[in-house]
Design a protein around this nucleic acid. Structure first.
Lengths: 106, 106
DNA sequence: TTTATACTTCAATATTGATTGAAGTATTTT
DNA sequence: AAAATACTTCAATCAATATTGAAGTATAAA
């Protein structure tokens, strides 16, 4: 997957409003599935589904509680978020835009 | 529409791979519909449809050719792109992430 | 003023993937 | 060992929207 496809995929994943909302909750810190359910009102399996998509692009990570491993904590993968932030910034950089004359002229 | 919804909408629009590809072509400079069709192979009305969506969030703009007004030129709205770039950068800022203990603990 | 061009809009269909409900897994508690 | 908890995975349905084909609009050329 080249950089173009990577950015496209990230936008696709965050482009879903439900996922965007869940991600934004994780931006306020570590949460478990049940807490996200509480805050959003979404079904618990739906949250699980979207967390998986976020995890697949390494935007978030999960960790089981040391004492009670039934609890799984989800948090933003800060290192990769920084990377994505940079790639996205580069992608949207206005300097990339060339002063081009369209080929189709009368 | 608050900033959160705005970013969500931008991600939604760019999250579509076809639109993302069209947008990326415009990042290489001004194009008319027919040129995008040539480069992508997409149907001309499909391109028109996606350009409209990009235009609705002011990511791109259009201008008719002065001599032959049948030609419509599409280009990235650099000012608004810069704004979006900044908002997105803020949104993804790792400093926003709080060091939070999940409420659900054993 | 008829025809051609460049593009848009509309309406219908197709596709993707979001959502739901049920079943399954892992772990802990009793 | 059985029941409860926290969550995941599967399979089916549903909804949003992408795509297509046809008709429509605006402008220019013949």
């Amino acid at each position: 997957m080249d950089n173009f496809d990577f950015i496209s995929r990230v936008l696709q994943v965050l482009g879903n409003p439900t996922r965007f909302r869940i991600f934004n909750i994780l931006m306020t810190g570590t949460h478990c599935n049940c807490e996200i359910a509480e805050k959003t009102g979404y079904a618990i399996n739906l949250i699980s589904h979207h967390l998986k998509a976020l995890q697949e692009i390494d935007l978030i990570q999960s960790e089981r509680n040391k004492i009670d491993a039934r609890w799984i904590y989800y948090s933003v993968n800060t290192q990769n978020l920084g990377y994505i932030q940079d790639r996205l910034h580069d992608f949207l950089n206005t300097n990339r835009i060339e002063n081009r004359d369209p080929a189709c002229v009368p």
